[in-house]
Each structure stands twice: as C-alpha cells, then as structure tokens.
Nucleic acid binder design. Structure first.
Lengths: 109, 109
DNA sequence: ATCTTTGTTCGTAATTTCACGAACTACGAA
DNA sequence: TTCGTAGTTCGTGAAATTACGAACAAAGAT
C-alpha cells in the first residue's frame, strides 16, 4: 500500500459524478430510478436531441456502469444497474456527510 | 410556464455534478467538509499537480458555487459555500432517493 | 525600493465532450 | 426477399477540459 492521496473511492465518485454532469443524463437516471425501465425510443420522443446524441449519452451512462441495456426485439430496454447505482448512492451519501445507508424510495420491481 | 422537460433542478444538479467530476476536486471538497477551511498552499504541497492546475480546479469549484475564497494577507483561505453546499446536498439526496434532509455530520465551525 | 511568497492568468497542446447528419446493423413484418 | 423500425457507429466540427510552464500581480518582509 501507498500514500494514495487520491483514494479509489474518490476516483469512483468522480467517475459517477462525471456521468451525472449533464442535464439529459440526470433526466434519464431520474426517470429510471422512478419507473424501473424505459426504451431509448421513449426518451428520443421526449428529449430535444437527435437519436445519435441520445445514444452517446446512454453510452456514457453505460460506460460509467450506472445503466444497462437489454435487447428486446427491435428495441432496447434500459434500466439502472442496481449494484453500481447502490454503490453510487453509498459513495455520494458518505461524501455529502449524511450517514444514512441507501434505501429504495420506491420499489423498482 | 412551459413544458421544460429539463427542469432547473436538473440543470443545477448537473452543474454540481460537473464540478465534482474530478478526483482532485472531490479531494478538496471532502477536505473542506471535514475541516472547515484550508489554504491553497496546503493543497499544493499535498496534491500531485502544479499550482496553476490546482488554481484551475479551485476556479471550477468557485464557478460552480461550491467553495469560496477569502483573502488573508499573502494567502487565500478557502472554505465551503455553505448555502450552495446545502443546496447540492439537498438536490443529490432527492435525486438519490434518500428522503433525508441534509445535516452536518461534523460541526464545521 | 527590492525581494519573497502566494496565487492567478496566459499561452500552449492533447484529449474529451457534445451535437448533428449520414451510414450502417439487426431483426421482425409484409 | 424486401421493407420498415430501432439504435448504434462514423465522420465532422466547435467548444470545453486538463495539464504544464512562464509571466504576472499583490502584499508583506528586508
């Protein structure tokens, strides 16, 4: 082990924060934390960006590990990556100094 | 009022997340939330970046409204912007679905 | 008045982000 | 097989990010 001024947790937290650093991506995450899943097409209809740009944002969320896609015939169903979402909740909670463990506010079935 | 798919809160949250999207800045915020204040020089000694780069990171945190600097003779004393920090806590808490109001975990005197 | 310390600003370069349209892939339906 | 739908990937360009060193500014110390 070494000094490591910048701990792994800080790097992880910064990575999650980076994924959240755009209003479109906040929107998607908030939607998914409320309704368990959605299709890219649903988002594309609502959001004021073209589908290729949306695809880029979804990729950023995927790369950060916050969401995952499941192929369902012609479409793709997106939902939160529960494990990493929980980790992000935990890291942010600790960081924000609220010593509360993450809990589901709504049952994401 | 208008549809506004992307609410102001989402924009604010994304802005704060952007400010947190770098390990160095996470480090600074974590330090300040634990010890109330610090000097740029203290950080410069510890962190593995040159002072001009550190200055840029501090500027990003200032621009986001998360910290504020106070001139103190040759040095500058940085501390959290309590008001905006509380707002960020609140927005993140809501977003992360922990219906807990922000509280101080340590008395930042 | 000059030196020293502390930090910001400037100039530069490499990389990443964000947005768009066009092209492509996968797959079910006709 | 051909067509249509759903999404990704590619190519592009503008802007922002990250990092560095050099130059600068402010203010106390000598």
């Amino acid at each position: 082990m070494q000094k490591e001024i910048i701990s792994n947790d800080k790097k992880k937290l910064a990575r999650y924060a980076k994924a959240m650093a755009h209003p479109i991506r906040i929107y998607v995450l908030e939607l998914l934390s409320n309704q368990s899943c959605c299709y890219s097409g649903d988002l594309s209809e609502i959001l004021p960006i073209v589908k290729s740009t949306l695809s880029q944002h979804l990729k950023e969320l995927r790369d950060a590990g916050l969401i995952q896609g499941e192929i369902e015939a012609p479409r793709i169903k997106y939902c939160l990556n529960k494990e990493n979402w929980a980790e992000a909740q935990d890291l942010f909670n600790k960081f924000l100094c609220n010593p509360i463990q993450p809990i589901d506010c709504k049952t994401n079935q």
